[in-house]
């Protein structure tokens, strides 16, 4: 039986907006396909986790108070986290966790909370505490973005290079199904922080704010990293994103092309249809 291992960071502190739902969705979609998901939790006071030994690392958003406490703890693992990202471990980072992985977070009083510096972006708090980016949000995300590149050392693409036949087949199917990977992503944003210097955004904003007030881009995206402000939780209404993560992790771990089984997503499809119509109409 195949299995994936997930590390859940600070479950008792970063748990404000139902973000744990992302793990529940991953677990559900894996188990429906006969794949086991092992969930390990790490919080302050626990033994140091071996980040690189996991397939997925997940962290969510929390209250300001909790976030300032844990940032001091998290920074101890700066190097091993960087190493895990480079080795291709998948990181799903929501809201506060998204911010913590950048260079720094500049608070309302100008105080700097140092980040992990895994990525080059940085976040500045909106000075007016009452002003926040709050509301439903819709993005257009190209899940095909990294499929043609082989930039990770241990990622999927390298493994395909070892198998020419499979590689060319894959390229054909990529060309034929470019649109298969383009998807609208629906979520809810609630953040005061404005994030700058994003090299590679998660998606284009179709409705809502994004990284800053009235931005055209949202989040940060790398083949093995999705960092975003989207709650909802993110994966609940976006099965294609879930399956992107699942495919990536399985292919990386088992070093082979894996065609994951299609699931009955009729609730998700109806939900998306209803909400996309509502939100995109509202915009017009």
């Amino acid at each position: 039986m195949k299995e994936l291992k997930l590390l859940y960071l600070y479950p008792d502190m970063l748990e404000l907006y139902g973000d744990y739902g992302n793990i529940q969705v991953l677990k559900y979609r894996l188990e429906k396909r006969g794949i086991n998901l092992i969930i390990d939790k790490y919080s302050i006071g626990d033994d140091a986790p071996d980040f690189a030994s996991y397939d997925i690392v997940f962290a969510g958003g929390g209250a300001d108070n909790e976030q300032s406490i844990l940032s001091k703890d998290l920074i101890k693992y700066k190097d091993s986290i960087k190493d895990a990202v480079e080795k291709g471990v998948f990181f799903l980072l929501i809201c506060g966790a998204y911010q913590l992985f950048g260079k720094y977070y500049k608070g309302v009083e100008g105080n700097i909370i140092p980040g992990l510096e895994v990525f080059n972006y940085y976040t500045v708090a909106e000075p007016d505490r009452k002003k926040r980016c709050i509301g439903n949000i819709v993005l257009s995300v190209d899940l095909n973005k990294f499929k043609n590149r082989s930039q990770t050392n241990n990622g999927v693409n390298k493994s395909f290079e070892n198998n020419n036949e499979e590689n060319s087949n894959l390229e054909k199917s990529i060309k034929a199904e470019t649109n298969k990977f383009e998807t609208e992503v629906i979520g809810f944003e609630n953040h005061g922080g404005q994030t700058f210097d994003i090299e590679s955004p998660f998606g284009k904003v179709l409705y809502g704010n994004g990284n800053k007030f009235g931005d055209t881009e949202e989040g940060y995206f790398k083949q093995n990293v999705i960092a975003t402000y989207l709650h909802g939780p993110l994966l609940a209404k976006n099965p294609k994103i879930s399956d992107y993560i699942i495919s990536y992790c399985l292919e990386r771990k088992y070093n082979e092309k894996i065609e994951i089984e299609k699931l009955d997503d009729s609730f998700e499809e109806k939900c998306r249809e209803q909400l996309l119509e509502k939100f995109l109409k509202e915009k017009m």
């Binding site: 907006y17 739902g21 609630n190 709650h231």
Partner: peptide
């Protein structure tokens, strides 16, 4: 407007044979 909170509900139900959902977020 944010319905994320429904993921904080502990939905382990006992002796429930059917669940009907409704409202503007029935599918969520």
């Amino acid at each position: 407007h944010d319905v994320s909170w429904i993921w904080d509900i502990n939905f382990e139900v006992k002796n429930v044979t059917r669940i009907v959902t409704a409202g503007t977020r029935a599918y969520d």
